[in-house]
Design a protein around this nucleic acid. Structure first.
Lengths: 168, 168
DNA sequence: ACAAACTTTCATTTTTTATTGAAAGTTTAA
DNA sequence: TTAAACTTTCAATAAAAAATGAAAGTTTGT
């Protein structure tokens, strides 16, 4: 496979993976492009490479900044903004987990907590099944949340060490 | 909060969570409905409760079967098909991880393996950054995949025990 | 203060994804 | 073998999400 083909395939693959994970296809593609770029890129370059509009490039770059996956870089004597991706993939993975925990798990836990309080007759099977299910889900989500919180605090070597100790 | 309101909120929340995880909103809602239902439900009942069409109900029930999250149940003397959800939330979580590993992680690993083979000049910085990035991603994905594979084989108590030993 | 260089916004349009429902298909019982 | 009971399919439609691009906004140097 030639480099150009490989690059397209990589960007495409990252985009598909992103969209099955609630991250927009284009945002994932912009991220992919920056991950494999040895230099910082301008909005202009992102637009050209991915053939997307200025507005679209701008929005996705901003979203990637909000996710903490890329940052602006200033080049001396230039007014344009340059963007670089965090290249340490372990850090990237941790950052994504951190954000998703904040954006998705935390709000769900708070709603589940509320839902346990629904009024009703304990002898009604619909009511008691509901309460039971909500409590069970909450327990699993809390444990997962705890595990992710701890995992995010480890560095890659500690993580591998842990796996090794546990399972090898 | 009244039971009816709580039920709506639960179905709604599960649907939103699903759609940020690449699972269609409606499929997650059908799943939610079955999770809190003490009895098996027919397609008809799902249609009525969620106000969706027959075709839509049928497709989402089929998808949930493909995911291994619900199953058909036969009621003696009835021709209709009844559906029940797996109620053990730990099993549900493991099943989802198992499916996503198969559907998403495995294909990505195989593409990354191919991408490491791109032809090119090792002194070209674009080429070498590409190879480096692909290899780094592959390493992190493989470790995550390994960890998930092991986690999916544990029962809930073993999982909690592990967390306790590691972090408490 | 001006204007060039650059970034952001957002109403409109396009694309993608999900839903409908009627028709076709299947199973069962008599 | 027929028909009622039920399930599945799929072309058409609707809804949701993403993208465009021109206009508005901002920053910087002179």
């Amino acid at each position: 496979m030639e480099f150009t083909e490989g690059k397209q395939k990589f960007i495409q693959t990252w985009g598909t993976l992103g969209s099955s994970w609630g991250i927009s296809r284009t945002m994932a593609q912009v991220h992919a492009l920056l991950l494999i770029s040895p230099d910082a890129l301008t909005t202009e370059e992102v637009m050209e490479d991915l053939k997307i509009s200025r507005g679209n490039a701008n929005m996705n770059l901003r979203d990637l900044m909000d996710w903490g996956l890329i940052s602006k870089e200033l080049v001396a004597g230039e007014r344009k903004e340059y963007f670089v991706a965090e290249k340490d993939i372990w850090k990237v993975a941790k950052q994504i987990i951190k954000e998703r925990r904040k954006r998705e798990i935390e709000p769900v836990l708070s709603i589940l907590e509320d839902l346990k309080q629904v009024k009703g007759n304990k002898t009604d099977k619909y009511h008691s099944e509901f309460i039971k299910t909500v409590a069970n889900i909450e327990a699993v989500v809390e444990k997962t949340d705890f595990a992710l919180d701890k995992a995010v605090k480890l560095d890659e070597n500690a993580f591998v060490g842990m796996l090794f100790k546990l399972f090898k």
